[in-house]
């Protein structure tokens, strides 16, 4: 057991994956000598060399496009996009190539590519450093999207993502990078199917709070602060969604509030609401409610506390759900 921050847990998971499989590469801007702006790749170039830990030119389309070629050649690149807002120059490569080549080659080409993205807000950053772009990618068939909410999951999930034959977008809640937990760094790797399982992180009976990444802690705090008996489910996987776990929870509680940082409009909450309504229509005591960012570009840092869902916003939605 070791006490690790989430950043260090991912770092440790990457190191383990690289030791186990010489085909695993790490590539991105400033990931080598600097160890990444969040130090998630710290020490990897020193251990594995410049051939395996590549400081790429400043070009995101290039990072992903060359990762496609490396994957075709049997390598397993783990790409870092420095910040969420800078994934868009690579949008074309991700959505038209990475997501489709397995299909177009009738399964002959594996896109074993992991795209790590420090995501979400809450760190007082300047523009383009606080985005939650998951909905764009969840809308794209062919991609898998996972996001850990704590160091223990981060250590396991990054290794599972690297081992997986499909492309995986790995969203790292950057404001939780420095939170610590005890991690068993010798634990065997659970089967890959576990990567796509949601987890009930707090049992409750009055309503379900479904969240992921940075919002899991927010929802747990809200549940702890409230007198009602709230269940908290960490989705962990956004594509595919683990509807079985989600539906099982909602069927018991009868109420669902989905909480995410991304704007509510066209967000994943809408997809979840539709799926849950279909599956639990007769168990629902209230419509599925969504708490998320407002439908505006992520605001300047001095307004982010208002923009981001917090304990009060979550509980306000619970109030509404209970009032039906």
């Amino acid at each position: 057991m070791a006490v690790l921050t989430m950043a260090k847990a991912i770092n440790t998971g990457l190191a383990v994956a690289m030791r186990e499989d010489p085909k695993v590469l790490v590539m991105g801007e400033d990931v080598g000598r600097l160890g990444g702006v969040f130090r998630v790749t710290d020490g990897l170039q020193a251990e594995f060399g410049e051939e395996r830990v590549i400081d790429t030119p400043l070009a995101e389309s290039g990072i992903i496009g060359t990762a496609v070629g490396l994957a075709m050649r049997g390598y397993a690149p783990v790409c870092e996009i420095q910040f969420d807002g800078f994934i868009f120059p690579a949008f074309d490569q991700i959505t038209t190539q990475v997501a489709r080549l397995h299909l177009r080659s009738d399964g002959a080409l594996c896109m074993r590519v992991v795209i790590r993205v420090p995501s979400g807000g809450g760190i007082g950053a300047v523009e383009h450093h606080s985005e939650s772009p998951e909905a764009y990618f969840a809308h794209t068939p062919g991609l898998r999207i996972v996001t850990p909410s704590n160091p223990v999951d981060a250590f396991t999930m990054i290794r599972q993502a690297v081992a997986h034959p499909d492309p995986v977008l790995f969203l790292e809640p950057k404001r939780r990078y420095w939170e610590k937990a005890e991690v068993d760094v010798t634990a065997a790797l659970p089967p890959s199917i576990d990567l796509f399982r949601a987890r009930v992180v707090r049992r409750g009976s009055d309503a379900t709070l479904l969240c992921w990444g940075p919002m899991v802690r927010t929802c747990l705090e809200a549940a702890q602060a409230d007198t009602r008996d709230l269940e908290v489910v960490d989705a962990r996987s956004l594509a595919p969604l683990d509807l079985a776990t989600i539906v099982e929870s909602v069927a018991r509680t009868g109420r669902l509030v989905v909480v995410h940082e991304a704007p509510v409009t066209g967000g994943l909450g809408a997809e979840i609401a539709a799926a849950v309504t279909e599956a639990c229509f007769y168990q629902l005591e209230a419509p599925v409610l969504r708490v998320g960012g407002f439908s505006v570009p992520y605001p300047p840092a001095r307004l982010e506390d208002i923009y981001l869902p917090d304990l009060d916003r979550v509980l306000e939605a619970v109030d509404r759900a209970m009032a039906y």
Binding site: P89, E127, P299, P300, R302, E304
Partner: peptide
Amino acid sequence: LGLFRGTTLGGWDPAEHGFNLYTIVI
């Protein structure tokens, strides 16, 4: 300073100074 303090995403009228807004996306 506004952009760096986090009070605005821009701060000035590009036409007024013939100076476009800062662009962060490289």
